[in-house]
């Protein structure tokens, strides 16, 4: 008779593992990836591939040669970081930009702290913000769509948010800017007119969100509280002065609000544990995003907002505990 195993209870385990959770996130990201490839063509493929490859390679090298620990590439978290980072870059950006982003994301933001689960800031956003500050020109130029779906002219120029910011500084009103640039919400919902790979289609992001909810990968509170906050905040200002402030729908559909609230703010490691904490976290992100958009120097504030709120997570976790049984 073979020797029996003995261990403390429980004796069975869920099938969910870190790898299966990350795989679900990758699947949820696929619609956005497909849309960006269709829209931007080979340049999107190049940036996606280089970002993922560098992220995975870097994690492999660091665990193997620097930390001398068992390799953690198999948990797929580096793949998720790579895809999210690529979706945050302009597809026209050269491959070395993705490489630098990967170095900052994996090398600085993630592995320095001890790898998955130990980092304070979301690696992909840290990488993106580093690039945004270091290479503002590359990071804000949306140079041409040579996509696989025909009929779209090559567009060059800033994102809708950038156009609005520019216009407001020149003293134009929102209506004038909108009319001059021919913005349409319908277009934003499906394929946006300018933006990083992941920002261009709201619908693709929403599809990913629904998938992750259905698979119970994430809880909806963080995402929804960000979206509601953005809508309410911009709604108030828009009602006060529609000529100076953009409307809520425009704010929800443009920039990284959807992508950020669905994929980046919900990152397990850098978001609060409890639902209550998640709501506070989300409201904070929403408010900071809108403050930057309306009053800051940058046209877009999602990344900064998430990073700032990341730093408050330990505090939120300390004070927002879930309800305990029998301790009213």
């Amino acid at each position: 008779m073979n020797r029996l195993l003995v261990s403390p209870s429980p004796h069975i385990h869920t099938r969910t593992s870190t790898r299966s959770l990350m795989l679900d996130v990758v699947i949820a990201l696929l619609p956005s990836v497909i849309v960006s490839i269709l829209y931007y063509g080979w340049s999107a493929v190049e940036i996606l591939a280089s970002s993922v490859v560098f992220c995975v390679l870097l994690e492999y090298l660091i665990t193997k040669y620097l930390l001398k620990r068992p390799c953690t590439v198999g948990d797929l978290s580096a793949v998720v970081t790579g895809i999210i980072l690529a979706l945050n870059l302009p597809p026209a950006a050269p491959w070395w930009v993705a490489m630098i982003g990967a170095v900052v994301a994996i090398g600085v933001a993630k592995m320095t702290f001890g790898g998955l689960g130990q980092n304070v800031f979301n690696p992909a956003i840290t990488g993106r913000v580093f690039l945004l500050i270091s290479f503002p020109a590359i990071m804000t130029t949306w140079d041409g769509a040579k996509g696989f779906i025909g009929g779209i002219d090559a567009v060059s120029g800033p994102t809708p948010l950038g156009i609005v910011k520019e216009g407001l500084m020149q003293g134009q009103t929102i209506d004038q800017i909108f009319a001059a640039n021919d913005f349409s919400y319908f277009q934003m919902l499906f394929v946006n007119i300018g933006g990083s790979a992941g920002e261009i289609s709201a619908l693709a992001v929403i599809a990913g969100f629904i998938y992750m909810l259905a698979r119970k990968v994430i809880r909806p509170y963080i995402t929804l509280s960000i979206l509601v906050t953005v809508a309410v905040f911009s709604g108030i200002f828009w009602l006060i002065d529609p000529s100076q402030y953009t409307d809520p729908l425009f704010n929800l559909l443009t920039g990284g609000v959807l992508l950020g609230s669905v994929f980046m703010a919900t990152d397990y490691v850098t978001s609060p544990m409890s639902d209550k904490g998640g709501i506070i976290f989300g409201v904070g992100i929403g408010v900071i995003t809108m403050l930057i958009r309306y009053f800051g120097a940058y046209p877009e504030g999602m990344s900064f907002a998430i990073l700032i709120m990341n730093s408050t997570v330990p505090l939120i976790n300390k004070f927002c505990k879930q309800k305990k049984y029998g301790r009213a």
């Binding site: 969910t16 870190t18 959770l21 689960g117 130990q118 490691v269 544990m273 409890s274 879930q322 301790r327």
Partner: peptide, 21 residues
């Protein structure tokens, strides 16, 4: 299965019927 890093997903806290962490 071999133990890996805590990813702070909070699934244990979600599952705990006593509301512990």
């Amino acid at each position: 299965k071999p133990e890996t890093n805590c990813i702070r997903c909070g699934k244990c806290a979600e599952a705990c019927p006593m509301g512990l962490e």
